[in-house]
Simulated assay, not measured.
Amino acid sequence: MASYASLKWRALARRHPSAFLLAAQLLSLLVYPLFEPAGGGRVVFGAFGVLVLALAVWVVNRSPAIKWIAWIIAIPAFALSVLSVLFASPGLLILSSALEAALYFYAASALIGYMMSDHKVTADELFAAGATFTLLAWGFAYAFVVCQAWYPDSFVGAQRPGEPRTWLELLFLSFTNLSAVGLGDILPMSPAARVLTMLEQFAGVGYVAAVVSRLIGLTMLRYPRP
């Protein structure tokens, strides 16, 4: 019975890897606030996310070259994330965040290529649309972490304006910026931070215009008009 359930879940994971990726991202988002006050929670969940992303890219992209690119980025990112927690090193945190941002952007581009590769919309591609959005949001959040470390006071918030922004605050900024909500309680101040913010705005608009609208159009074509 247990082996049958294991095979069933394995087959489901291979059929809908994007759904598992999206679920893992959203689950970490829900659980993270419990760990943030203790410190190190961002890195723990980031390291777990790196492994999930590397596996997702390996499943979606069957090319050995694509697979090894993901692992080459994921392994040092995971190691540096753990070391930055053990030794509380800002330098290691910057390196791990940069690698994690690169892996999230790489995985997002892989999923976009996967969704754009044919003219047939599958259930997994619909999950991939949601997963790609979270990948982009996480990737820019890690880029904001690097920016804040290199250029102090790059971001200012309504609360504790003179202090660095926490990981959750930067992730919140990334989500509001990518979705064009723009609540405005966290603002980019340095030139580098503003450039990153503009790039994310461009990525968000381009993603909706090029990918999401295409999936919606192809889905509507499946159902002929009466």
Rank of each mutant, 00 (worst) to 15 (best):
P164T: 04
L135I: 05
P188F: 06
M189Y: 06
A203T: 11
Y151Q: 05
S190N: 10
D124P: 08
Y207I: 07
G139K: 03
A129P: 00
L170D: 02
W138C: 14
Y142F: 14
W138N: 15
G206Q: 04
E169T: 10
A123Q: 03
Q148N: 05
P152I: 09
P164M: 09
T197Q: 13
D124V: 12
L173M: 13
L126R: 14
G162D: 15
F133H: 13
L183S: 11
V146N: 01
P191K: 03
A137F: 04
Q201H: 06
A143W: 07
E169F: 03
L187K: 13
A128W: 04
P164A: 07
F172S: 09
A131H: 08
R160S: 14
P152D: 12
N177S: 14
E200C: 06
F172T: 06
Y151R: 01
V195I: 15
F202P: 00
E169M: 09
V121S: 02
P152H: 07
T197M: 10
G204P: 03
A192G: 01
L170G: 01
Q201L: 11
L126K: 14
G182A: 14
A137R: 02
F127S: 06
G182C: 03
V181D: 08
R165C: 10
Y207S: 02
T132K: 04
Y207H: 01
E169Q: 15
F155I: 09
L199N: 03
P164G: 05
P191A: 03
A149I: 04
G182E: 12
R160L: 08
A129V: 12
A192L: 09
N177E: 10
F144M: 10
L168C: 00
E163R: 13
P188Q: 03
G206P: 00
G157N: 09
E125C: 05
V195R: 13
P188A: 02
Y142N: 07
F144N: 14
M198D: 15
Y142I: 00
Q159K: 09
P191R: 03
P188I: 12
L171M: 11
S179W: 00
F155N: 04
L183H: 05
T122R: 04
L178K: 02
P191Q: 02
V205L: 15
V156N: 00
E163T: 07
S154R: 13
A203H: 03
C147E: 14
F172E: 08
F172I: 00
E163C: 06
L126S: 01
T134I: 07
E125T: 11
V205G: 08
F144K: 12
P164L: 04
A180L: 09
D153Y: 14
S179F: 10
A123T: 13
L196F: 10
P188W: 09
Y207W: 01
R165F: 07
A180T: 00
V145Y: 03
A192R: 11
G157I: 00
L199F: 09
A141W: 00
N177L: 11
E200V: 07
F172A: 05
A137C: 14
F140S: 12
A203W: 05
